[in-house]
Amino acid sequence: MKINHPLLGPRNASEFTILGDAKLLQRPNTPERDQARVFYEYLYHRDNPIGQHQELWFHEQGDRSWLIVSRDTLTHEINNVELASNVIKKGQTQ
């Protein structure tokens, strides 16, 4: 797999480590009710779809930026890569 880094161009996936589902960015604020349940869902129930998956990759052996990679879990094809910091600024993580 090659990841098309928005700043550095195509890089070998072996330079990166993967954390998983990009929804991990949406850490809930401490809610008033149902705290245990909300954090349990956040931590343990991740998306695990067949097909498109948004995930967090860390360029550990590169510029150490976090990327949000949209990848197909059936074909391993990558069709979008963005800097996580940009996505957060735009408030776009769903």
Partner: peptide, 11 residues
């Protein structure tokens, strides 16, 4: 990485 492909990568 999450995968349903039954094949992996070179790394």
């Amino acid at each position: 990485y999450n995968s349903y492909a039954q094949r992996g990568n070179m790394a």
